[in-house]
């Protein structure tokens, strides 16, 4: 593989009209998959083919993210504004899988993944590390997760070619089986399989988040800077086994959207020194939301807001429920309303 570099100057005039019209064009295409009139045999074959291709490209991208040696930068557009990041990944000759994502604006924030350990460093707080196979940042961890889990809730459909950062790209959509959650579009480099761009849409088709690579360098050899980092990592800290948490089993969720399951449950103090809460992390493989149940309902005020990350707090008879996550507000509201104490 020969090395190549793509460079791009991002000029952010934020032409809202133009971009929204692009978004508006999406729903019609997305909608074809849900309310289908009985498809003809030919249409059905085409759809199956598009899905097979979508899965092929998605798996190719998953391998690329884990195996390629790349040095990239990207911008993320979120409701809170525009952010720039540097993104480096390499598999070293020693076999270590190392990834670094760092913000390029404002205070220094860095996340370093060394195999299954992730260290978070910030110029404004004490660094710490956690055991995790994925780094929590702007690139959704769902892209690194198991294909089967994701497939349980989403169709992956290849929708044709495109040109992204001056490279030939394959456009695939992640279309949820249920229209109650976000949809995703991915653009994958046809040559290397690398992720080039990603859009997140509301069920209505409006864009809520965009990620776009602005430079990409891929090489066959392990990256030098990552090898230096590896040599300074030290003896490889010991890993402790996952601690089994004693948790309450008295809560019942009547309105969990299809495909979402509990990934993790434990008792927490909200934001370290807040009220004691029973915490559940739900995921459908791509989207994730937290459920906090607090027994002392007086500690929580009812509130909701709608954004890329939605949040809702409701107060039931003797407890309060808060939902937070990158899901539509309507989903958060339904989940919150459906929490009950087991009889």
């Amino acid at each position: 593989m020969k090395p190549y570099v793509v460079g791009l100057l991002v000029i952010c005039s934020l032409n809202v009209g133009a971009l929204q019209s692009v978004a508006a064009a999406e729903p019609s295409a997305l909608a074809t998959n849900t309310v289908e009139p009985v498809p003809t045999e030919q249409e059905s074959n085409e759809l199956q083919q598009a899905r097979a291709q979508g899965e092929h490209w998605f798996k190719r991208m998953q391998s690329a993210l884990q195996e390629l040696n790349y040095r990239a930068s990207f911008i993320a557009m979120q409701p809170s504004g525009l952010q720039a990041y540097r993104w480096v990944h390499s598999v070293t000759p020693a076999g270590n899988n190392i990834e670094v994502i760092e913000s390029l604006n404002g205070p220094h924030n860095q996340a370093v993944r060394f195999n299954n350990q992730v260290a978070y460093l910030s110029s404004t707080s004490t660094p710490y590390a956690v055991a995790s196979e994925t780094l929590s940042g702007p690139i959704p961890s769902g892209l690194y997760g198991s294909f089967e889990t994701l497939h349980h809730s989403y169709h992956m459909v290849a929708v044709g070619g495109d040109r992204v950062v001056d490279r030939a790209a394959q456009h695939i959509r992640l279309i949820p089986h249920e229209r109650d959650r976000y949809l995703y579009s991915l653009w994958v480099d046809r040559e290397t399989g690398m992720l080039l761009s990603m859009n997140t849409y509301l069920p209505s088709g409006d864009v809520v988040e965009q990620i776009l690579l602005t430079s990409l360098h891929v090489q066959a050899e392990s990256l030098e800077e990552v090898q230096q980092l590896e040599s300074q990592w030290g003896q490889g800290p010991s890993r402790q086994p996952m601690r089994q948490q004693q948790t309450s089993n008295e809560w019942q969720f009547d309105e969990v959207p299809t495909g979402f399951t509990v990934q993790r449950q434990q008792q927490v103090r909200v934001a370290m020194n807040g009220p004691l809460a029973e915490h559940f992390m739900f995921t459908d493989g791509m989207a994730k939301f937290s459920v906090y149940i607090i027994e002392n309902e007086n500690q929580v005020l009812p509130v909701q807001y709608e954004n890329l990350t939605s949040m809702v707090s409701v107060v039931h008879d003797s407890f309060a429920v808060t939902i937070v996550g990158k899901v539509p507000l309507s989903m958060a509201q339904a989940v919150a309303a459906g929490v009950r104490r087991q009889p």
Binding site: E102, N105, G106, A111, Y120, S122, E225
Partner: peptide, 24 residues
Amino acid sequence: WLKPAANMAIAASVALVTVLGVTQ
């Protein structure tokens, strides 16, 4: 350790903050 990565020649200085660490 991170110095090598930080030395990569990408001159970028735009605005705004990120959500990588817990204080941001």
